[in-house]
Design a protein around this nucleic acid. Structure first.
Lengths: 210, 210
DNA sequence: TAGATTGTTAATCGATTAACAATC
DNA sequence: TAGATTGTTAATCGATTAACAATC
């Protein structure tokens, strides 16, 4: 499995290149990408070289080519349908989040255990959790998002795995363990914030009064 | 600066220990923590040893002690007030997210550039962006969350830095560059999901029909 | 050609893992 | 005591960085 940090960087290079393209840039140097993403230029060249993304000595990289080649590596494919389980605060926000669509990601349906939240008529239907298994099978869904409370997460996780889900983005504040059958990306919002607080505090200790 | 992955693991050990405490566990072995967090037991012991968190040879670690010692290291302090800029989908969800409070994190106010979103009477006030600088100063805020659209992110970032914000959790899909004066944690929701899709796809290639 | 940037190799750095002596 | 687990040291592994030859 390729190093996760490297894959994330590749996505970032692509994002920057897309912005540059929108600004009508034709070429870009490793140094520019490095600055935009916050790494060294050597890292950019190394990353590119590992994925055989090549530029032009002296002339840098062609912006279009960079986008195209990274998309090839990362597999910009056809529309990816995903499901979401847990129609609470975060779930609702993600359902309405406009950023996914442009990358070919479509939340096809949401599921919740609370009958009051079910809404089959909605643009993106909200269905009873009990229907998830069938839905996943009928629509060949592979990816799911978990936005349920922590006490429900493990159970929902098992349910999704047995339904055939192969990859999960988990926002419940618990570490779901990934396995051969299912990849997991745990995002703990509290921890993301707490770790910043930690760094701000400790940094100040080292440098009193900046 | 301490390795970020290590700090995140420490938070995870603490979270697990808290759950164990709720279940009336008295002791825990490095092996148990390792399983819960998805690392090796050697890693747990190494992490603990680096922060002088000690257990009992033969008897493992005392759950209470682990929590207390990790909290000491990570600085479970008094209530941390943070602000949020961008009262859209994600911003609204975070404002209502119940998980922060229990870790002593309180979103004190939200800010938005759209006058229609301003609501001074709300439990957590939503204020005009123009008032952010004063608010931050008057309330000694150090931490901010960015949930504005990508095109606004850089500008809001500069504004927050000049207001005196020292740490930022950024959900806008752009890499804000951290500096001496301000720590940044960039979370790109699209990329988090896209990288899972990438891994699911490539894993399947290697193991067809697993 | 001279100058600048890539692509790659080798060196460095740091994190993880293994192993085992210490010890409860 | 015998057995089991920590705590730490040394070995391994992998990722980043430096440096520079290739070359546009």
């Amino acid at each position: 499995m390729q190093n996760r940090a490297r894959i994330v960087r590749l996505f970032r290079y692509r994002n920057v290149a897309r912005k540059l393209k929108a600004l009508r840039y034709i070429r870009v140097f490793s140094e520019n990408l490095a600055d935009a993403v916050g790494v060294t230029s050597a890292q950019v060249r190394k990353d590119f070289s590992l994925f055989s993304i090549s530029g032009n000595r002296r002339g840098g990289y062609n912006v279009e080519e960079v986008i195209k080649q990274i998309e090839m590596v990362l597999g910009k494919g056809k529309l990816q349908k995903v499901i979401l389980v847990g129609f609470g605060n975060i779930g609702r926000a993600l359902l309405r989040y406009p950023g996914f669509e442009k990358d070919g990601i479509k939340i096809a349906a949401a599921f919740d255990i609370d009958p009051a939240k079910v809404n089959r008529e909605s643009h993106i239907p909200v269905l009873p959790l009990s229907e998830m298994g069938n839905y996943v099978e009928n629509n060949s869904i592979q990816i799911g998002i978990i936005t349920v409370p922590d006490y429900a997460a493990q159970q929902v996780f098992e349910l999704m795995k047995s339904a055939g889900i192969k990859g999960i983005l988990n926002f419940a504040p618990i570490c779901l363990q990934e396995s051969e059958e299912c990849i997991v990306n745990n995002i703990n919002l509290e921890t993301e914030l707490e770790s910043i607080i930690y760094y701000v505090k400790t940094r100040k200790k080292r440098k009193p009064k900046q």
